[in-house]
Design a protein around this nucleic acid. Structure first.
Length: 197
DNA sequence: CCCTGATTCGC
DNA sequence: GCGAATCAGG
């Protein structure tokens, strides 16, 4: 497999969406996550936050025996001839006042005591909610006893009814929830600042 | 042990 | 340019 224009495009899109390298590799097929990461770096879009120029932790660490200098110069200057076609995002994109949110509402407002971090009174970013909605469709729907240390423990539905289950998707390193639920569980305080202005 | 991304270096 | 091996870490 080679990095065709289309594959690179998919790579960029998914990486931009915050997908992990392994997920992207799986999606593309024929490549390993290493290949994806390597490509990502070569494309010059290693850091997703892009703050200042350092690539975070690993970059700061230096353990190489003989590595005098590591000049970095990714001056990519690719002028695209595509003015209007940009947003290739055909996601449902749920509005904060949309209809499909009801499902998420149920999810974040369990009713027992083993509740997860109750988002309480604050509002969750529409993006995060949309993500949760999508996740619920692909959730493993595990029972309490099926949960392990690497299954998302986000409860969905009413514990008092049959329609209750735990997400069960792969947890994000360390956290008790999957990517999507971590998103609604741990909202950066800066992120939940006023919306709509 | 599962996973994550980062870096190195032979190809 | 590519990506396996390796590293560093959650």
């Amino acid at each position: 497999m080679s990095w065709t224009d289309e594959r690179v495009e998919t790579l960029k899109r998914m990486w931009g969406e915050g997908q992990s390298a392994s997920q992207i590799a799986k999606e593309l097929g024929g490549v390993t996550r290493n290949a994806v990461i390597g490509k990502v770096h070569r494309l010059g879009l290693s850091n997703r936050a892009g703050s200042g120029g350092n690539a975070g932790k690993a970059a700061a660490k230096e353990k190489a025996p003989s590595k005098p200098a590591t000049p970095k110069a990714p001056p990519k200057a690719k002028t695209k001839a595509a003015p209007a076609s940009k947003p290739a995002k055909e996601e449902p994109e749920l509005d904060e006042n949309g209809i499909p949110i009801s499902a998420a509402r149920r999810a974040i407002i369990p009713a027992g005591q083993p509740l997860p971090p109750q988002p309480s009174a604050n509002e969750i970013s529409p993006e995060a909610l949309a993500k949760v909605n999508e996740v619920e469709k692909t959730a493993k729907k595990l029972s309490l006893m099926e949960l392990t240390e690497k299954t998302c423990k986000w409860p969905v539905g009413d514990p008092a009814t049959d329609d209750f289950w735990f997400c069960g998707l792969p947890v994000q390193a360390g956290k008790p929830y999957c990517e999507a639920h971590v998103g609604v569980a741990f909202q950066p305080m800066s992120a939940r600042r006023d919306r709509r202005r």
